[in-house]
Design a protein around this nucleic acid. Structure first.
Lengths: 186, 186
DNA sequence: CTTATTTTTTGATAAATGTCAATTTTATTG
DNA sequence: CAATAAAATTGACATTTATCAAAAAATAAG
């Protein structure tokens, strides 16, 4: 079960047998039913989560409304960025959208490894730079594209999200109301 | 002149004398008049820039209009994220908004150091995680705040930008037209 | 200092999106 | 499968922001 995990890590940055062993000692596996929370608001995010099976959405409340900030598809990583790095309670929640199996890598392990293992440090750099590119891309699309364009982009670039997310999740993810998204779709 | 640079690096992540020496060998200093370009569209971004003196804006063209994506204040870092990591021609340009002095750290040096020096790798991780937090924060504000709120945030959180950026730069940075910003201001 | 150029402001109008309410459709549960 | 709850759609209208054009103000150049 970890072999697929390490294959994906390896495709991000090469890691040797020794490094794998070290990483493995900081992994835990958890299962979640659809709709359960991987991380609750107020908890501190102490892991980087890998969706071995299933998917999730990351959301927060703004004026009593749920706003979906991000989706994580199967075989992808996620975490609450600010909470993880600042060790502060998360304003984000992470909720599974299907029955899921999550492989968690602890921050304690990450801290230890980035200070002791060059291979791991470089792996982590590559994970961060990948996240940064994604975040930047999304920011650009928010800055000067219309709701319709943003929806089109989603359909062409991340069609898998349409499979598991409902209209309200997608609407708030795109920064629009569900009524507007419904009209765009028709 | 480098001492201030290293103080700032050191405040991000502790680095010893040896690491400093190694970094120093990959630094170059460049001066720019106001309005000159640190990076042109189409060039590949091969450095991380530190604004020792002066400031800049990072912009791109969309439908023949300039869109400012980011501002860099004095004593801060910047680079074209996608171009730097993917080694591809930048769609962004970086233009100074004042006479400036830039300390450039080369990608060649960065590549070398992250693979050989744990201290540097950790420094770089901290630079990336800081960028990621900023990027995320900006994305959130784009997602569900009105133009007026985004402007208010800018005034309270980054007032220095108002000193060197003109109305059009700020408007496109906020994702609105200059007419709208002018009305918000009055 | 005067003229030219660029930037900002203002006005009128159009387009995009939001809000609220009602209805229809879909999903859930006993 | 009927009853209920939740989600999606639709309509009427309000609000925000964009667009285009012109005027005013600020900046740069001779």
């Amino acid at each position: 079960m970890f072999s697929e995990y390490f294959n994906i890590l390896g495709s991000i940055s090469p890691i040797g047998e020794l490094c794998r062993k070290k990483i493995e000692s900081h992994l835990t596996i958890k299962e979640f039913k659809k709709g359960e929370h991987i991380l609750h608001t107020g908890e501190t995010c102490n892991h980087i989560y890998f969706m071995y099976k299933g998917c999730n959405r990351i959301y927060y409340y703004k004026n009593d409304k749920e706003i979906t900030e991000w989706f994580t598809s199967e075989k992808h990583f996620c975490f609450s960025i600010t909470s993880f790095f600042d060790k502060t309670p998360s304003h984000l929640s992470i909720e599974t959208l299907e029955d899921s199996v999550v492989i968690q890598l602890s921050r304690k392990g990450i801290d230890e490894l980035i200070h002791s293992d060059l291979e791991f440090a470089n792996l982590f750099i590559n994970i961060l730079s990948g996240s940064l590119k994604l975040s930047q891309k999304r920011m650009d699309s928010m800055q000067f594209e219309t709701a319709r364009q943003r929806y089109q982009n989603l359909v062409t670039e991340q069609p898998e999200i349409l499979q598991f997310a409902n209209l309200q999740h997608i609407a708030s993810f795109l920064g629009i109301t569900s009524e507007t998204l419904s009209r765009i779709r028709s």
